[in-house]
């Protein structure tokens, strides 16, 4: 079913909206959740929670792109679940690996100014990504937004894993410089 029709089911409060959403996006959302959680059961629960969150938010939201909207919900729920479950101890998952990689971009918190507004940071990262060639920013987001494994992201971009690693390394350095320039880091 086309996204527009699925969204209309949400607006009509027709419970077939969930069925149709699951039929079309379950695998997609499950993959996002698994990238974070590396646990089948937890991932299924997060996907189901995502359907509920979509039902609660549509309407009034009318996503321009349903897959992106749902993916963002699932990603958020999965990350929250991950943090809740692991708290101080990081379980091995693509999410954890991504955190380790991104840790290279930043230094340890420095004083009270270390707490930055996430929204400003998001805008800054957007600005950074727009300066990057399309292929590179797509790779970056595959790895750090969708939390695909390095090999998966490389394969989807049609490049070797080593090349992907080099590109991401360069981008993390560039992001770091960008964040320094914009005052998020010192």
């Amino acid at each position: 079913m086309q996204d527009e029709k699925i969204i209309e089911l949400y607006f009509d409060r027709d419970e077939r909206a969930i069925e149709e959403t699951a039929a079309k996006y379950e695998n997609y959302l499950f993959k996002i959740a698994m990238n974070v959680l590396s646990d089948t059961e937890d991932s299924r629960e997060c996907v189901n929670d995502s359907y509920f969150a979509a039902w609660e938010s549509i309407p009034p939201a009318r996503p321009a792109r349903l897959s992106g909207y749902l993916g963002k919900i699932t990603r958020r729920i999965s990350i929250d679940r991950y943090r809740y479950k692991t708290r101080d101890k990081r379980k091995e998952s693509e999410y954890a690996l991504s955190l380790d990689e991104l840790g290279e971009c930043i230094t340890a918190p420095e004083g009270p100014e270390a707490a930055v507004e996430i929204k400003l940071l998001a805008e800054s990262i957007s600005r950074f990504l727009y300066t990057q060639p399309r292929d590179r920013r797509v790779l970056f987001l595959m790895r750090y937004y969708f939390l695909d494994s390095l090999s998966e992201a490389a394969e989807r971009c049609g490049i070797g894993e080593n090349k992907a690693k080099k590109i991401l390394f360069g981008m993390r350095n560039s992001l770091r410089e960008h964040l320094i320039k914009e005052g998020f880091l010192q």
Binding site: K72, R75, R76, I79, Y95, S98, L99, L102, C105, I106, V116, I118, K119, L121, A122, E123, S124, I125, S126, L129, Y130, L141, Y144, Y145
Partner: peptide, 10 residues
């Protein structure tokens, strides 16, 4: 924070 901020990018 970067992971969280990516939720808010364009």
């Amino acid at each position: 924070d970067i992971i969280d901020a990516l939720d808010g990018i364009d």
